[in-house]
């Protein structure tokens, strides 16, 4: 599998990363070499092996259903580029 320049641009746009035209070729080379490495992993036979999504063979810890957080809109909004009252304000998005 190898990525063409159009796919590189699409991945960048999905990730909202600006990629200049002259960067596409470099990224294409780098990503393709990463994919090549992953393809090597695909050669390993894993029939009958449980998929493992983490290194720790542990289960998730749970917390009790108690309200312990929130109530500080000022802190939450502290870094907002724009606000209106206690709302974040963003350029209009209309569906």
């Amino acid at each position: 599998m190898s990525l063409d320049p159009a796919t590189i641009r699409r991945i960048a746009s999905l990730a909202r990363i600006r990629v200049e035209e002259h960067e596409v070729e470099t990224l294409q080379t780098e990503l393709n070499s990463i994919l090549g490495w992953i393809e090597q992993l695909n050669e390993v036979n894993v029939d009958g092996v449980e998929p493992l999504t983490g290194g720790a063979r542990m289960a998730m810890k749970m917390r009790d259903d108690v309200v312990t957080d929130g109530g500080y809109p000022e802190k939450v909004l502290a870094n907002a580029p724009d606000r209106n009252g206690d709302f974040f304000a963003v350029p209009k998005v209309v569906e």
């Binding site: 309200v67 312990t68 957080d69 929130g70 109530g71 809109p73 939450v76 709302f87």
Partner: peptide, 21 residues
């Protein structure tokens, strides 16, 4: 009472951003 992955409240109709961790 609290959210799925945080300890902030879920009640409907609160002041904006007052139940946000």
């Amino acid at each position: 009472n609290a959210k799925l992955f945080s300890g902030s409240a879920t009640a409907f109709g609160a002041e904006p951003n007052s139940q946000v961790s």
